[in-house]
Amino acid sequence: MEFMGIERDRLHLSWISSAEATKFVEVVNNVTEAVRALGPNTHFIKNEAKVA
């Protein structure tokens, strides 16, 4: 995804067990923070289809 022009911090992958509530909170906070820092995504957004 990074290769095709999506910022690295916009996409996160995490493995969290249902017992790891603390990790879950931590990850969600980190993700929100990282994505907020990047601002709204402007790439790969299709609004109305381009037509002639």
């Binding site: 990074e2 290769f3 095709m4 022009g5 999506i6 910022e7 790439h43």
Partner: peptide
Amino acid sequence: EIEAMSTEEKHNFF
């Protein structure tokens, strides 16, 4: 060469 580009450049390149 593509990897060395910035996010914006990559996006525009493709």
